[in-house]
């Protein structure tokens, strides 16, 4: 199981999704993608999008206003 971290600190709403989408395309099934975000809308947006895609998703607030979204590529 590989882990890939996408650093999206300072990136506004659509960028984290676009970056995650590109990162997930290069990953194998079962890999874990960690998206680091500090944009509160992306914190809602990215998990919602990833769940819609059918991936397993978890969010952890690692600091005030900073989140790590864990996305497991399941397919």
């Amino acid at each position: 199981m590989n882990e890939v971290v996408v650093d999206c600190y300072g990136e506004a709403c659509p960028i984290p999704i676009v970056k995650s989408e590109k990162a997930l395309a290069d990953m194998a099934v079962g890999d874990l993608l960690i998206v680091q975000i500090d944009h509160s809308c992306a914190m809602k947006n990215v998990p919602e999008w990833a769940r819609e895609q059918g991936y397993n998703v978890e969010v952890e607030e690692i600091d005030d206003g900073e989140w790590e979204v864990f996305i497991e590529k399941t397919k």
Partner: peptide, 16 residues
């Protein structure tokens, strides 16, 4: 392990 996963691990666990 691949390079990216190693660096990612250290950074994410450090943050946590």
């Amino acid at each position: 392990k691949s390079k990216s996963s190693l660096s990612s691990r250290s950074s994410s666990s450090r943050r946590r």
